[in-house]
Design a protein around this nucleic acid. Structure first.
Length: 788
DNA sequence: CTAGGGTTAG
């Protein structure tokens, strides 16, 4: 395996051109099978004899097609009559798909010298009003639609009316469906209204499409009316789907129940809509609602199928809530439903996203050994896991295994593997893999080039990254925002700041997102002041990751006022941080004792239904304790328990460390702010021990420290011994607490001498702040020792 | 006909 190459520009080009030529050979090797003699004669044919030959193939359409392919390769173009003949042949054999593709090719070719309407004319001369003509105009509509040429498709529709050969409603449905996909809703509505004028009569499917269009427009009322009016199950189903897409799954679920009551749906319909509603709730992240729906349905005797379960499992996996996902999986298996590769892939991905790649691979093997069919999506997740672990050799082995099972890797599989190589800096391997892929007839797409360019930039090959970027454009691929952002950030992370800045300036279409990436890139390379300056210049809402990264970077450098400006800007734009981001921010704010801002963020979180995690609660409690606002700490402690978040050893330690401050015997100088509910340490201690949580070194240290402070030397030493007995190794701070406790009283005895000797033997370097105190204590103790 | 996989990403 080769490691990070020093790839020069020319080497890179060499590899690229080799890859390009292998692609060329592959395609020419795929050519059809006319004999040599036939090929020889082709160039001598004129249009008339060409037509004659074509006509003679009317009993063998595949021969007709390969004949044509050869002709085209000789650079001879067909005239309108030849095309009419070909169309007639294909049509008479019912080869609609072939007909479609011939027409598509015809339309792509702009140097034909005739239009498709001419073609209709020619066919009409011989087959006026026949079925053939109707079929051809339908095929023409479909061909235009598949090329995204909607105006032309509609034009054919209206021209056909003139020729009295309006295509059947299917072609029209196809057109309308595609129009919706491309967001041209108004055209669908207009077309629907003109159907009668065209002599067409919409069927159930047409109505369903129209319902879909109205839903997309947000006209749920109109959609509902049409669904009722057409009283077709299909239209109803589409309406329910529309509700789900519009984020009103609640309503969809209600309608579904109504349809079951009125027996509007058959078995198939029930299954389809069930899945839609379950999926809708999951998409809206309303997991409780989704589960309630499933329970309700079960009550009336309709159980979820694999499709509905997979929606639930997938959503929980995406939320990184593996226990819930597995609970549903168990439930599903308990009902005798079988797990499939789709569900497996969701679960595997969940492990990967939680940084548990080893577990993902373990599970992959388990599922495979259970003889569950794993498809290329599952394999892809495994490639990803191996890549993240830096185990590319094994990933490639797995690729072989996949091939052996008869699955051809696709561009996504290759991209994942290439990404893996890029993480490792094995760029030549990445390029080799692309070459191999091209050999298999697959061309890289924008995402693959993005990954590759990012990989080169990140690994210090800025110029090559730009070559890749230009190459992608040369191949006719259009880089997107992500491409640009990846390149900008990768260049920055390789400290190529100037190149990143130049790259942005040279972009034809710049957008704020690009500059946001520059801000992130500056942060990445530690230029937080520069990042902040650029950020201030950007007067628009940004993705929350930008605020997050900048905030963290500024906090790290100690520019707290700037960090707060970032936070406030974010809030001003109503960009609300997610749970983990809030947690990190709260941590950063607490770290600089700005508990006021931290609490504001904390409350924002709660108001948005984001329940702070154990870590966030603990850090807040800790900060309040440190600032002697014990009442507030106490409130949060109760609050977290009410939310079902179980305090851990850290939380209890924090509390045990501060409640003694309330003790009358407590001698610390800080005063406690505000009224405090009467709660003593023993109350907390009781809860702590009841919870059965094991004590750690820090916790023992706090307890020892407290005993020292209330002059209970025997208890302190007892705790110290107990700690050692329970298998914990006291650290510097633990010794320090004990020794300091002794020294404070100016007291020295055998125990202390022993402790100090032990401590001096330890090979620990004291940390600066606390260590200094310990050292002083130790020295003091030593002096006592010498005095004796 | 429907689902799950590859880029920025804490």
């Amino acid at each position: 395996m080769r490691v990070s190459p020093n790839l020069s520009l020319s080497q890179f080009r060499l590899i690229r051109s080799a890859a390009a030529s292998s692609r060329f050979y592959t395609i020419s090797a795929l050519n059809p099978n006319l004999s040599n003699s036939e090929q020889l004669n082709l160039s001598k044919l004129n249009q008339a004899s060409l037509l004659r030959v074509l006509n003679s193939t009317r009993d063998d359409p595949s021969l007709a097609l390969s004949f044509l392919k050869q002709i085209k390769q000789q650079g001879v173009s067909l005239n309108v009559n030849a095309y009419a003949t070909l169309v007639r042949i294909l049509s008479s054999w019912g080869l609609d798909r072939k007909l479609d593709s011939v027409l598509v090719e015809l339309m792509k070719n702009e140097e034909l010298g005739f239009s498709v309407i001419d073609l209709i004319e020619v066919i009409r001369e011989e087959d006026n009003g026949s079925l053939l003509l109707i079929r051809v105009s339908g095929a023409l509509v479909k061909a235009y639609v598949s090329l995204g040429m909607f105006d032309e498709a509609i034009d054919v529709l209206f021209q056909s009316k003139r020729f009295n050969c309006v295509p059947d409603i299917k072609a029209c449905n196809f057109l309308m469906n595609r129009l919706i996909e491309f967001g041209k809703i108004d055209m669908v509505v207009a077309l629907f209204r003109q159907l009668k004028q065209l002599g067409l009569c919409g069927n159930d499917y047409t109505n369903a499409i129209m319902v879909k269009a109205l839903c997309r427009k947000g006209d749920l009322g109109g959609a509902s009316m049409l669904a009722v009016e057409s009283s077709s199950v299909f239209a109803y189903t589409t309406f329910i789907d529309g509700l789900c897409v519009n984020g009103d799954t609640e309503k969809a679920a209600a309608l579904f129940k109504e349809m079951i009551d009125t027996k509007t749906l058959d078995g198939d319909g029930i299954r389809t809509v069930y899945g839609m509603v379950a999926r809708g709730f999951c998409k809206e992240k309303k997991m409780e609602a989704a589960e309630r729906f499933i329970l309700d349905m079960e009550e009336i005797g309709i159980g979820p199928d694999v499709y509905a379960y997979s929606a639930m499992i997938d959503r929980h996996c995406k939320n990184l809530n593996l226990p819930e996902a597995l609970r549903f999986l168990d439930q599903m298996l308990g009902k005798g439903l079988k797990i499939n590769c789709v569900i497996v892939s969701s679960i595997l991905q969940c492990y990967c996203k939680m940084d548990m790649c080893l577990e993902a691979l373990q599970k992959f093997k388990e599922f495979r050994d259970m003889n569950i069919f794993l498809d290329k999506v599952c394999y892809n997740v495994a490639f990803d896991a191996f890549g993240k672990l830096g185990r590319m050799e094994e990933a490639i082995e797995l690729l072989k295994e996949m091939r052996c099972k008869g699955m051809a890797p696709d561009v996504i599989n290759y991209t994942t593997l290439i990404g893996g190589y890029c993480i490792q800096g094995k760029l030549v391997d990445a390029l080799d893999l692309i070459e191999e892929m091209r050999g298999n007839g697959i061309s890289p797409d924008v995402i693959m080039y993005t990954v590759l360019a990012g990989g080169f930039a990140r690994n210090g090959h800025a110029d090559e990254a730009l070559v890749i970027y230009n190459e992608m454009k040369k191949e006719g691929l259009k880089p997107n925002d992500v491409t640009h952002n990846v390149i900008i950030e990768s260049l920055c992370s390789a400290r190529e700041i100037k190149k990143a800045e130049d790259f942005i300036e040279n972009l034809e279409e710049k957008c704020p997102k690009n500059y946001a990436s520059l801000v992130k890139g500056y942060c990445e390379s530690g230029l937080s002041k520069k990042a902040f300056k650029e950020f201030v210049r950007l007067q628009c809402p940004l993705h929350k990751s930008v605020y997050f990264k900048l905030f963290n970077s500024l906090c790290l450098k100690g520019y707290l006022d700037k960090a707060l400006t970032v936070l406030k800007t974010m809030w001003a734009y109503h960009v609300v941080p997610g749970r983990s981001m809030c947690g990190k921010m709260i941590g950063a704010l607490c770290g600089v004792n700005n508990v006021g801002e931290a609490k504001m963020l904390f409350d924002t979180m709660v108001a948005r239904g984001l329940i702070p995690d154990l870590f966030t609660y603990t850090i807040m409690i800790h900060t309040y304790c440190r600032l002697n606002e014990l009442q507030k700490a106490d409130y949060l402690f109760e609050d977290m328990k009410q939310r079902g978040i179980k305090p851990d050893v850290v939380t209890y330690t924090v509390l045990l460390d501060s409640y003694p401050k309330l003790d009358p015997e407590h001698h610390e100088t800080d005063s406690v702010k505000g009224e405090v509910r009467k709660r003593n340490a023993s109350e907390v201690w009781g809860e702590f021990t009841d919870a059965g949580i094991e004590l750690d070194v820090v916790c023992y240290t706090v307890l020892i420290d407290r005993q020292c402070k209330i002059h209970n030397r025997e208890n302190a030493i007892k705790l110290f011994r107990q700690m050692i007995k329970s298998g914990l190794k006291p650290d510097m701070v633990a010794y320090a607490a004990l020794i300091r406790g002794y020294c404070r009283k100016g007291y020295i005895d055998e125990e202390v001498k022993l402790l100090v000797t032990e401590l001096l033997k330890m090979d620990i370097l004291p940390t600066e702040d606390f260590g200094a105190a310990v050292k002083r204590a130790a020295l003091k103790a030593e002096r006592f020792q010498y005095r004796e």
